[in-house]
């Protein structure tokens, strides 16, 4: 509830990574709920222009990680840089797609109005969305393939359509960095396809996308980078290097049975692939 906690920590005079601008740098991030650590000493560097999955068991802190990067939660310690600056200064370059279940879909509003909410930050105080904003919102709805639903009541939407509305709301923000919390949760196959196409087109435009993801089977197919998380960071980096059975075991603990099954189906390597 307080202002961005990252701002209270002084900026280091020399950035740790000098080579090129990273989309996200997280250092020593610790978040605790009362006395229980939810995230413990996380270091993470996300290069620009990639699709990264954040993977881990329930309660691993995936949503917490996103929310603390976005300054929605109080962090106990650590630092977050977005495009080498504090989040506060880069807010206009960041868009957020929360979990579908966090809002009341019975709320009396229409699809177009929800999408327009993505523009409320840029509109400024007292201004109402006009023709231009509505055109932007319609274009975003077209991109997610539900333009014809713009006047629909949100309670009449299916799960997949709700997810698309949330994606459209993030698209109108025209950000460089997207955070998506379980966008594939409970959607139909068509929507899953549409979302993955959208993610790829975002990457083609040089955007960076971080996705909390549940389905280990599709990680290799959909993403190019992955972060394995279970309160601590187990590993992060290109899929080929870090999406290994060994790392997955460390992340998911003893429940390796289903991992072995998926290893056979997906050819998850026991050891990292030889990367030059």
């Amino acid at each position: 509830m307080s202002s961005n906690p990252a701002s209270t920590t002084p900026l280091p005079t020399e950035p740790m990574i000098v080579t090129k601008e990273s989309a996200i740098i997280v250092r020593d991030l610790t978040v605790a709920y009362r006395d229980k650590p939810v995230l413990w000493d996380i270091d993470l560097t996300v290069p620009k222009g990639i699709l990264m999955a954040i993977v881990g068991p329930n309660g691993a802190g995936k949503t917490t990680l996103i929310k603390s990067i976005l300054g929605l939660l109080k962090i106990a310690a650590g630092q977050v840089l977005i495009f080498d600056r504090l989040y506060k200064q880069q807010r206009h370059r960041v868009a957020y797609v929360p979990q579908r279940g966090t809002v009341d879909w019975e709320f009396p509003t229409s699809v177009l109005d929800v999408v327009l909410m993505g523009l409320y930050g840029k509109l400024g105080w007292f201004k109402r969305p006009g023709k231009k904003e509505k055109a932007t919102a319609r274009e975003a709805l077209r991109q997610v393939g539900i333009e014809e639903l713009q006047n629909r009541q949100i309670k009449q939407l299916s799960g997949g359509q709700q997810q698309r509305v949330f994606l459209a709301r993030a698209l109108v923000q025209d950000a460089d960095l997207y955070f998506m919390d379980e966008p594939f949760q409970g959607v139909d196959a068509t929507t899953e396809r549409a979302i993955i196409d959208l993610l790829r087109s975002l990457r083609e435009k040089g955007k960076t996308v971080l996705v909390v993801h549940h389905d280990l089977q599709t990680v290799q197919e959909y993403f190019d980078h992955v972060m394995l998380l279970n309160v601590r960071k187990i590993a992060s980096g290109p899929i080929k290097e870090v999406f290994t059975l060994d790392n997955l075991r460390k992340t998911y603990g003893g429940r390796v049975g289903f991992l072995q099954a998926s290893q056979e189906a997906q050819n998850i390597p026991e050891e990292p692939a030889n990367v030059e």
């Binding site: 300054g71 506060k88 993505g118 930050g121």
Partner: peptide
């Protein structure tokens, strides 16, 4: 929460 992420 989305409002907060917009900086409002």
């Amino acid at each position: 929460e989305f409002g907060k992420s917009l900086g409002l």
